[in-house]
């Protein structure tokens, strides 16, 4: 697991990774756009260009938007493994693996509810998702 690639963190995204260390998935949101969240983080809104952005904590609930099961190598991963896109309840998409779930299409149904978890990687926590416990998100 520790062989997995560490993200290169830049000044604008420091808060995101600091939040993850505390078990929070933090998003930027645009004030003039009615606190509309966006991803990945940046200190301005990609919809209207405003610099009036805040940091909000995502609920951690989402749904499986799309995925592939990769049979190709990646450092620290044992193929096959699932590469997925989660649609967060807040309306933004992000990449994830599907933790605690076999890389098998029979266990992966589009729009199934997912919940936030974290993977420890070195001194970082990587936001990850797993099938939601108890069904509906």
């Amino acid at each position: 697991m520790s062989d997995r690639t560490q993200p290169t963190i830049y000044p604008e995204t420091q808060f995101y990774w600091e939040g993850a260390k505390q078990g929070k998935l933090l998003l930027n949101a645009c004030t003039p756009c009615g606190n509309k969240p966006f991803f990945p983080p940046r200190p301005f809104c990609p919809h209207c260009g405003s610099r009036e952005v805040t940091v909000m904590q995502a609920s951690g609930r989402g749904a499986l938007h799309s995925f592939v099961i990769s049979h190709l190598p990646a450092p620290g991963y044992e193929p096959p493994f699932t590469v997925a896109v989660v649609m967060l309840e807040e309306g933004v998409k992000m990449l994830t693996n599907i933790m605690n779930c076999p890389p098998d299409p029979d266990h992966l149904e589009l729009d199934m509810p997912l919940e936030l978890t974290f993977e420890t990687r070195g001194d970082l926590k990587i936001p990850q998702f797993q099938p939601a416990k108890g069904g509906a998100a």
Binding site: Y10, L72, V85
Partner: peptide, 22 residues
Amino acid sequence: QEFESIYGPLFPPARFTLPVMR
């Protein structure tokens, strides 16, 4: 690199194909 590669889709076949199930 910061928000996608870290989840392992290093090669195009595991990345370019991601929208297709949807």
